[in-house]
């Protein structure tokens, strides 16, 4: 799969085979289902985070994933996915959720501590997907995100 910046300030993903498309479809699958609740768990009871903030976070995070799922499905019909500038943060957030989900599941820790060849097959595949998500995030930060 190639990941390239576009002249309009976005990036274009060009999957080259079914495996590449499978990785893109896995973003939503890998995303941590309870990220909002986990973040809420960092707050004390007095803040009433669970009642007041967590629902809004859930909606926000779901929106990012829904957008990416839709973009991947539509991109499959064109053999490419263009991420325009204004959608950069949505994609960044969805990819981040996926990486947080993989970390929650496999506890990879810091990248420099990992030897991919020593991982079990499912773990290794998860690790490699995580590395790909990180690469796209890095490209988004460099060429797209205005923050």
């Amino acid at each position: 799969m190639t990941v390239m910046p576009t002249i309009n300030g976005g990036i274009k993903l060009t999957p080259e085979n079914d495996k590449d498309w499978a990785v893109l479809k896995a973003i939503a699958f890998d995303a941590h289902e309870e990220l909002a609740a986990r973040l809420g768990g960092l707050m004390d009871e007095e803040s009433m985070w669970e009642d007041i903030v967590v629902p809004d976070l859930e909606t926000h995070f779901s929106g990012q994933l829904d957008h990416v799922v839709k973009a991947v499905n539509e991109g499959k019909e064109k053999d490419e996915i263009t991420i325009p500038k204004e959608e950069g943060e949505l994609w960044y957030g969805a990819l981040n959720q996926a990486r947080l989900g993989l970390e929650s599941k496999y506890h990879f820790g810091q990248e420099e501590d990992i030897e991919p060849d020593e991982l079990e097959k499912e773990e290794r595949q998860g690790y490699l997907r995580g590395r790909f998500y990180c690469t796209v995030q890095t490209v988004l930060m460099e060429y797209v995100l205005e923050m």
Binding site: Y92, N96, R99, E103, F108, Q137, T138, L145, M147
Partner: peptide
């Protein structure tokens, strides 16, 4: 702000700035 092994350092800095 607590450390985690996922969020990229550059991203964390940009969030703090924003």
């Amino acid at each position: 702000v607590l450390d985690d092994p996922v969020n990229l350092m550059e991203y964390v800095a940009r969030v703090l700035m924003r």
